[in-house]
Each structure stands twice: as C-alpha cells, then as structure tokens.
Design a protein around this nucleic acid. Structure first.
Length: 366
DNA sequence: GGCTATGATTCATC
DNA sequence: GATGAATCATAGCC
C-alpha cells in the first residue's frame, strides 16, 4: 500500500467524515449543527478528495491553499496519529533485529586477522608460524613475513577506504531521504517516527552492502593466507655444509642410520635446520639409499674416506699428545697408507650393509 | 622444456 | 610416535 492510499485509508477511518458523509443531507445538517470547525474539516477533506480529479496546476494551487489553511496543522497531526496506529503498529514489530551472527563472525575474523580494529601487525603470528614451518633461513622467513604483512596492510587499507566510502554514501543518502521526507511532510502526513523507520531501513540496506565488503575482505585474507602457507611446500635445498654433516653422519652410521633424538637435535643445530627436517632427511636418505645402493656407492666411499681421515687426524693428535713414540697404536682401524683406502672402504661399507641388513632381519624376528 | 635431485607431505604399518 | 613407501612440488642442470 503506498503512502497516498494509506492516507486515503486514514481519511476513511476519520469518524466517517470523508466519503460516507459527502452528499448526505442529514450529515450536512449534522455538521451545520455541530458548528464551524466540523464544517471546515469537511470542506478540507472534500477538497483533498477532489484533488485527484484536477489538473496538476489546479492541484498545486489547491495544495498551496490547503497548506495555508488554518486547520491544516490540526488535521495533519490527526492524520499522522492514525497513520502511526494503523501502519507503524503492524510494521514496527520487527524493527529491533538481533545482531546477525554472520556479521559477527566476519567481524571477529577481520579483527583476529588484524584487518579491522587497531593496527597491530595483524596476522604476524600466523605469518611467523608459517615461515617457521617453511623451514627457510631466517632471512627468507623475514622476507616472506614482510611480504605477507605488506599484502595484509594493502587489504586493510582497501577495506577501510571502501568502508569509509560506504559510510559516507550511507550518511549522504540518509540525509537526502530525510530532507526529502521533511519536505514531503509539509504536504502529506509523515511523522518523525516514520522518518526514523525509513532511516533504519536505509541503514539495514547499507549494512548488507557492508557485509558483502566484509565477506570479500575475508576471502582475500583467506587467499593470502593459503598462498603464504602454501609457501611451506616451496622446497629449498639445504646448504652444502648441512648436507655434508648429514651425509657424514649417515655414512658413518651406515650399520644403523637411525639417529637418536639427541643426535637429531645435535645435527639440527649443526645444520641450522629443524629436528623434523633432520628426520625427513634421514627418512628420505634411507629409502633412497636402499633403493639404489649402487648409485650411492661413490658417495658412500667418499664419506667413508672422509670419516676415516678425520678419525686418523683425531687419533694422531691424541697419540702425539699421549705417546709421540708410538703413533696410531691405539686405533686398529687406522689406515696405514693411501693404497689401503679403497679396499678398506669397500670392506667397511660391505660390513655396514651386512649389519644393516642383519639388523632388519633381526627386527623382523624380534 | 625435459630430466634428475631433493625436501616435504601423506598414508599405512608397527 | 617413528618409520617406510609413495607421491608431490620445486630447484637446478642440460
């Protein structure tokens, strides 16, 4: 029902003063007996009813005349009262909406991610955790971290600028509608309560637009986070020194290449990687070595020699310190000459394979 | 661009 | 929870 129809409905309900009485001689008599004010109201109403049959210019002129009529304010307030009773009492029930749970969820998420609320380097904890999980060097992590933060800041800036635009647009539109209604209220019954209700409707409409903004911002943050977290799959080779340390341990413990927790921690510290990376490395190494021992033979020889040389050096230093007269006497595995190296290494590797294989057989039966 | 090496992940098993 | 095995995804080389 539009406003004009509502107004008409209001008029019909005005104690039968409108259509029912028009042209009724008894009614006219009654009005005459009731005195001047009632007659004035009847005249005004008749004029109002007649407006629809008139041309625009005539209607404008009559409208002006009606506006200037001395009874107009009283009639206007009565019409407002009727309108309020008939329309607002029905519609006003659902005005106090409870807060939308979806908006609350979005607000919470934006707050947690540091997009809304005070700027505090939001999401930095997530970024740091993901960077740590990536296992990259501290420099790499900080680069990724700052990249994440920069992109988050960009999202934050866009969100706030859009939010500001929406708020400004909402306020401008509300003012515009309010002015329009105030202007119209001079010619038709619009109560302040109705204006208030209209403002609430506008705010609801704009808040649904705001929700879309919040939703798309949340999506942008999610995409950013997933991209950032996916970076953990970005493989980076360990540096040469770390690989050497791990290989040295692996080939020098070929009979049982399963480092203890303490050994893993020690290796992790030496290589500048995490314990789980050490575990991954040993897991991969064991399986790949076993799958293709031939391919790793050369590498195994190399590290066996290296280990033997290191052991010889340590032992020589110890012997020199303890008994310079009898070098190498304390180490039965000590290499005596360069020619011994290949034979010794082959024996040692074969022995390790035997031990490893034997260990597995034993573990199968134990 | 294809290939290999390699670190990470996933899933099943113990 | 540790490990093996398969697989994914990327780096690096040619």
């Amino acid at each position: 029902m539009d406003d004009q129809t509502r107004m008409m409905t209001g008029l019909t309900g005005l104690g039968g003063l409108a259509q029912a009485d028009v042209g009724d001689p008894d009614s006219v008599r009654k009005q005459q007996s009731l005195g001047q004010p009632q007659q004035d109201i009847g005249d005004i109403l008749q004029q109002i009813m007649a407006i629809t049959d008139e041309s625009l210019d005539e209607a404008q002129a009559r409208k002006h005349a009606l506006n200037c009529h001395r009874m107009k304010p009283a009639l206007f307030s009565v019409l407002c009262e009727i309108k309020e009773k008939t329309v607002l009492s029905i519609r006003g029930v659902q005005e106090e909406d409870p807060p939308d749970p979806q908006i609350m969820r979005l607000d919470n998420m934006l707050l947690a991610e540091g997009v809304s609320g005070p700027e505090k380097g939001g999401g930095s904890a997530a970024a740091a955790a993901a960077a740590a999980a990536a296992g990259g060097s501290p420099t790499d992590s900080s680069i990724e971290h700052s990249d994440y933060r920069a992109k988050l800041a960009q999202i934050r800036q866009i969100y706030h600028s859009e939010l500001e635009k929406y708020e400004q647009a909402c306020s401008e539109f509300t003012n515009h509608v309010m002015n329009l209604l105030r202007e119209q209220s001079r010619t038709r019954p619009i109560s302040p309560k109705e204006i208030e209700r209209m403002v609430a409707i506008i705010h609801r409409k704009f808040s649904s637009i705001q929700m879309q903004l919040k939703q798309s911002t949340c999506e942008a943050v999610m995409i950013l986070r997933s991209r950032f977290l996916d970076a953990r799959r970005k493989r980076r080779n360990f540096n040469k020194q770390a690989t050497e340390v791990l290989n040295e341990y692996f080939y020098s413990h070929l009979s049982n290449p399963y480092p203890s927790e303490e050994a893993k921690e020690e290796l992790a510290k030496k290589c500048g990687i995490t314990v789980s990376q050490v575990s991954n490395w040993f897991g991969n190494k064991r399986i790949r070595y076993k799958k293709n021992i031939g391919k790793f033979q050369e590498e195994a020889n190399l590290y066996a020699v290296k280990t033997a040389v290191d052991a010889a050096n340590v032992s020589a230093q110890a012997s020199q310190a303890n008994s310079p007269a009898t070098p190498n006497s304390g180490n039965k595995y000590l290499i005596q000459s360069d020619e011994d190296f290949p034979t010794w290494n082959m024996i040692k590797i074969e022995y390790f394979h035997y031990c490893w294989h034997n260990h597995e057989i034993k573990s199968q039966f134990s």
